[in-house]
C-alpha cells in the first residue's frame, strides 16, 4: 500500500515536468531531424519530398569546383583567423585581472570594473551602431582626424576590406575583456593571503609575487577557459559578423556561421547550408570531447 503510494508520487512528479521535456524535445532535439535536408534536394517554397535523395552531393558540392572550393577555403581561413586571434590573446583577461587586483584604491577599482564590464551587456547591433556613429564619414574619428589635419577626406573605416580581422578582434575585445576578467578576479580573491605574507617576509617584489604566486594559482582557471574556447573554435557566432558585413568587407568577414546563414537566407541553398552546419556540429562535438579530455589530464577534473 505504502509502496504503491510512493510509486504513484514518483510518476506524478514525472508528469509535472513532462510538458517541459516536450518543449525541450521540440525545440532542441526535433531540429536535429532537419539534418536529413543535407541528403535531399530541398528548395522551399517547393515542399520537401523523400524522392529527391542526393546522397552526399551537397557535401561534395562545397569542394567540387575550383570557384566553390576557393569560397569554402576563404571562409575557413576567416574562421581560423578570427578564432586564432582570440585564442592567441586569451591571456589578456587574466593579465587584466591580475593588475586590476594590484590597484589598492577601492573606489577606482570598483569604477573600472563596472565601466569595463558594461560593454558585454550591450548587443552586437548596438556595438555596430556605436561603431557606425564613431567611424562614419561624419563620425567622431573622422572629425578629429580632420580637425588635427592628418586627413582632408573622410576615411570610410567600415566600408573597407583592410584590417577586418583585427578590427573585429578589437570590437570583440572591447566588448568582453572586462567581463572575462571577472572569473580571474574571483580566482585571485580565493588565493590564501598567507602565501603572499610569507613571500613578502622573504623579500619578494610585487612582480615576483605575481609571477610566483598569483599566476600559478589561477593557471588552472585559464586552462579550462582555454579548452572551452578551443572547443568553440568553429563557432564564432554570426551576429557580430552579420551586423558588420557589407559588400566591401564580405571576403574577409564571412566566417563559417555567417556563411551558413548567407548560403541559406541569401541564396536559398537550404541543403548545402544544412550540410555545412552539420559538418560543423560534428567537428565541434569532437573538439569538445578532446578539450574535455585535455582538461582532465591537466587538472584531473573535466568541465563537462
Amino acid at each position: 500500500m505504502m509502496n504503491n503510494k510512493k510509486k504513484l508520487r514518483s510518476y506524478r512528479e514525472f508528469l509535472y515536468i513532462l510538458p517541459f521535456l516536450i518543449l525541450v524535445a521540440v525545440f532542441s532535439y526535433y531540429p536535429l531531424y532537419g539534418w536529413i535536408y543535407a541528403f535531399f534536394d530541398y528548395r522551399p517554397p517547393r515542399p520537401f519530398s523523400f524522392d529527391d535523395f542526393q546522397g552526399l552531393k551537397w557535401f561534395k558540392y562545397l569542394v567540387d569546383n575550383p570557384i566553390r572550393l576557393e569560397q569554402t577555403l576563404l571562409v575557413m581561413r576567416n574562421t581560423f583567423a578570427m578564432s586564432g586571434l582570440s585564442i592567441l590573446t586569451s591571456w589578456l583577461p587574466m593579465i587584466f585581472a591580475i593588475f586590476l587586483n594590484e590597484i589598492k584604491c577601492m573606489p577606482f577599482r570598483k569604477a573600472v570594473q563596472t565601466i569595463t564590464t558594461l560593454p558585454n551587456f550591450v548587443s552586437w547591433v548596438l556595438v555596430f551602431s556605436i561603431a557606425y556613429n564613431l567611424l562614419s564619414s561624419n563620425g567622431m574619428a573622422n572629425s578629429m582626424l580632420m580637425k588635427v589635419g592628418i586627413i582632408d577626406q573622410p576615411i570610410l573605416f567600415l566600408q573597407s576590406s583592410k584590417h577586418v580581422w583585427s578590427t573585429m578582434w578589437l570590437w570583440g575585445t572591447w566588448k568582453s575583456l572586462g567581463w572575462s576578467a571577472i572569473m580571474y578576479i574571483a580566482a585571485i580573491s580565493g588565493i590564501d593571503e598567507e602565501l603572499y605574507e610569507a613571500a613578502r617576509v622573504d623579500g619578494a617584489t610585487r612582480m615576483q609575487l605575481i609571477w610566483h604566486i598569483t599566476i600559478p594559482s589561477i593557471l588552472p582557471t585559464y586552462t579550462v577557459l582555454l579548452m572551452l574556447s578551443i572547443s568553440n573554435f568553429l563557432s564564432n557566432g554570426m551576429e557580430q559578423y552579420f551586423v558588420f558585413q557589407n559588400s566591401f568587407n564580405k571576403e574577409a568577414i564571412q566566417v563559417l556561421d555567417l556563411y551558413v546563414y548567407n548560403l541559406a537566407m541569401g541564396s536559398g541553398s537550404y541543403s548545402v547550408s544544412t550540410a555545412l552546419s552539420m559538418l560543423k556540429s560534428v567537428v565541434s562535438i569532437v573538439l569538445l570531447c578532446v578539450a574535455n579530455k585535455l582538461a582532465k589530464l591537466v587538472r584531473g577534473e573535466s568541465f563537462m
Binding site: L21, F27, L32, Y33, G34, V260, Y270, S277, I285
Partner: peptide, 22 residues
C-alpha cells in the same frame, strides 16, 4: 535521465536552417 536529457542540449546545436524550418 530527464536531467541529462535537458543538460545535453547545451552541447549541440542543429543549425540555423533545421531550427528555422522547425
Amino acid at each position: 535521465l530527464w536531467y541529462r536529457f535537458i543538460i545535453l542540449t547545451m552541447y549541440f546545436n542543429a543549425g540555423i536552417i533545421p531550427w528555422y524550418i522547425t
